[in-house]
């Protein structure tokens, strides 16, 4: 499971270590705090914006913690219904670094493996281990107790994000 991702990551590191040198630690800290500030300022006019659940076109949802540092990610009710009976949820390992747009796991249902794509970059801080024991719970409460991972963000969400209303309209059009 996470092996796949760590393999991919190792491969990336191998191929791009020359071009993507890590910034010194102090710099990274600074960068992170600037980004976090921006995350707040963007939403300053609409405090609701960050805390409100947002949806991707790939049917994931994200929701920020109160301090805006961590996002919880899951799959939408629409997706859970469309996938059918979930028999296995492939979770990443804690501490996995993920870039936005990357797969952080997969859900298997009725012979289908569906990638779970993260719209945000960061570090996985928590995975919902209960889904290992009871993958079927993902069908019952995909937007509540059956969240998939929590990610400490290192940047702003990328790609198109929709509010609940926009997402509902999007799935009705599809």
């Amino acid at each position: 499971m996470a092996a796949r991702f760590s393999v991919a990551r190792a491969a990336r590191q191998l191929t791009s270590s020359a071009t993507r040198r890590q910034a010194p630690l102090a710099c990274q800290w600074q960068k992170a705090s600037i980004q976090q500030q921006r995350l707040f300022t963007v939403s300053a006019q609409r405090t609701q914006f960050v805390k409100e659940k947002q949806y991707t076109e790939d049917h994931e949802w994200i929701e920020a913690s109160a301090d805006g540092k961590t996002f919880t990610l899951g799959i939408s009710e629409y997706a859970a219904k469309a996938l059918g009976d979930v028999v296995y949820v492939e979770l990443p390992e804690v501490d996995l670094e993920v870039s936005s747009g990357e797969a952080i796991g997969a859900v298997e249902s009725v012979k289908s493996a569906s990638d779970i794509l993260s719209p945000i970059g960061g570090t996985v801080t928590e995975v919902n281990d209960a889904l290992q024991e009871k993958p079927g719970n993902l069908n019952k409460d995909p937007e509540g107790d059956s969240w998939i991972v929590k990610i400490a963000v290192s940047g702003e969400p990328e790609g198109k994000l929709m509010t609940k209303e926009e997402y509902t309209a999007f799935t009705e059009d599809a």
Partner: peptide, 8 residues
């Protein structure tokens, strides 16, 4: 049959 779903 088997299936894989990703990115649309």
């Amino acid at each position: 049959s088997a299936y894989k779903l990703t990115r649309g």
